[in-house]
Design a protein around this nucleic acid. Structure first.
Length: 479
RNA sequence: CGGGGCGUGGCGCAGUCCGGCUAGCGCGCUUGCUUUGGGAGCAAGAGGUCGCAGGUUCGAAUCCUGUCGCCCCGACCA
């Protein structure tokens, strides 16, 4: 229940976030180290996220399946970089049924290994390819410092795992998914992202190429909101995923994997939220419109509720996710603040005055206070609300994009870069050497985010070492 | 793992230095009445043995010893 004021973003962004997650009723801390409990409201939001993605994956030929939570320890040792990358984060099961296990199991931190193992069993011929499987579930990584949604030990996600007969096809798959992620961010989350390949040092352990979508939070830090990897034949070789091609020649598969996690909820909070609380993009909001009836006396109540009930049915019939707040133990003011805290895009207030005038008061969440309030006729209200929801969706994206663009700068020189990344992102030429990347990280804590794929080829010089460079990269501090 | 801090009703804290008898306060919760267009008021209630174990003492939340757990800051990560 939202009873106290939220710490403001300016005061302490991190604290603002922590309080918001609890007060908006999205999640709660659990008795298990680093693991969260996702509450019904948070899960409803997650279902809207997964629902859209699931539909999109199916439309592009993918199918869902499930693999075990536990993975034999030895599987991790088959791919050198993979085990190096993940071994510090593994939780290990050593006992079962009261007996010490001969070989310990690992609680999956990601499923490339066990899925690779199965693919080796399933793939024999080029006719078996491609395999396009998505697994929905949770994974566990023993993170040192956790934060609800952003970095929890256990988190929820989908992991796509595909196997192909050619490198070209696998790379196309990686980019196809990246495009879906990009579209999802812009259209559903109203979060502008940059997509493109990551540097070698930022790659997923075992990947030949990692691409990502990167978003700017309101504190100007960067958040990797989704990744799509191309493995080449690394995992195929480690797990012997082989097939006979059309020429009867034995080949290794080309594989990919990709994921968006419950971290996306953290991104939505940190991109759109304000000092009143959560601000949800209408397309993902579990509740798109809430009706708050207002009355004093019994006879007012009867009249108001009659109108409120009718409007509720109208909005519902129009496909709007609508909620009636008929609690009688809290004041209207409390309800206003409560629904603002939960980020509901539109509030419909109906009081005795509105019944008289055949009107309602609409309040849009993206503009709290008087500015976002309007009085409209009850006639065709469903259409009015639908338009308003669409407008809010557009406005959120516009606002986030303007904020992002205003905080990205192209450094003149290295000194300038240092200043920029202290409070924003730098977009700079980079020679793509690990040395220059490491230097920036050591000097500023900023890392390369990704090399946006839609930039034209141009001639420049690396902002760090001055060597010729053809592509620019984003440098930013991350979560 | 290095540095800092904390364990007292559901939550947030006071009390601990200088032991003292029925362990307080705010929020939340329950019931009733009045309220309800921007976080309502009053009244009456319920709820803790003070992280855990041992010790000192007539007496321990408070002192001593041990132990467990948590949080924050630093290197990784969807």
């Amino acid at each position: 229940m939202a009873e106290e004021k939220l710490t403001s973003r300016a005061e302490d962004f991190s604290e603002w976030y922590n309080q918001l997650v609890l007060k908006a009723d999205l999640a709660d801390y659990s008795p298990v180290r680093g693991c969260m409990v996702v509450k019904p409201y948070g899960w409803a939001l997650w279902e809207n996220i997964t629902g859209w993605l699931d539909k999109e994956f199916k439309a592009t030929g993918h199918v869902n399946a499930a693999f075990p939570t536990l993975i034999p320890m030895s599987f991790f040792e088959k791919e050198k970089e993979h085990v190096e990358g993940f071994s510090p984060q593994l939780a290990v099961v050593t006992h079962g049924g009261g007996e010490k296990l001969e070989e310990p199991y690992v609680v999956r931190p990601t499923s490339e290994t066990i899925i690779g193992h199965m693919y080796a069993k399933w793939v024999k011929s080029w006719r078996d390819l491609p395999i396009l499987i998505v697994q929905w579930g949770s994974v566990l990584r023993w993170e040192i410092r956790t934060k609800l949604f952003l970095r929890t030990a256990e988190f929820y996600w989908h992991e796509g795992h595909t196997a192909h007969s050619s490198a070209q096809e696998a790379e196309e798959e990686m980019y196809r998914i990246l495009d879906i992620y990009e579209r999802f961010s812009f259209e559903e989350c109203a979060i502008p992202v940059f997509k493109g390949p990551k540097s070698e040092s930022e790659r997923f352990p075992g990947a030949q190429m990692t691409t990502s979508i990167e978003a700017m939070m309101q504190d100007k830090r960067a958040l990797q909101a989704g990744t799509s990897h191309y493995f080449g034949t690394n995992f195929a070789k480690a797990f012997e995923i082989q097939f006979l091609d059309k020429n009867n020649s034995l080949q290794f598969c080309e594989t990919t994997s990709w994921a968006i996690s419950s971290r996306m909820i953290g991104a939505i909070i940190m991109v759109h939220g304000d000092d009143q609380g959560l601000v949800l993009p209408p397309r993902l909001a579990p509740i798109q419109a809430v009706i708050v009836p207002i009355f004093k006396k019994e006879e007012e109540k009867t009249k108001v509720m009659e109108v409120a009930d009718r409007i509720f049915m109208e909005l519902k019939a129009a496909g709007i996710r609508v909620k009636m707040d008929d609690r009688d133990n809290v004041s209207s003011g409390f309800k206003f603040n409560d629904w603002e805290m939960r980020g509901v895009p539109v509030r419909v207030e109906i009081g005795p005055k509105d019944v008289e005038k055949n009107s309602v008061a609409l309040a849009r969440r993206d503009r709290p206070g008087k500015e976002g309030k309007s009085f409209v006729p009850q006639t065709d209200l469903a259409a009015t609300v639908s338009e308003l929801l669409a407008d809010i969706q557009t406005s959120l994206l516009k606002r986030a994009t303007e904020f992002r663009d205003a905080n990205i700068h192209e450094p003149k020189d290295y000194e300038d870069l240092k200043k920029i990344v202290a409070d924003g992102w730098a977009f700079a030429y980079w020679c793509e050497s690990r040395e220059c990347e490491t230097k920036v990280k050591e000097d500023t804590k900023a890392t390369t985010r990704n090399i946006p794929s839609n930039q034209p080829e141009h001639e420049g010089t690396c902002v760090v070492c001055g060597k010729p460079s053809k592509r620019k990269v984003y440098f930013a501090r991350t979560y």
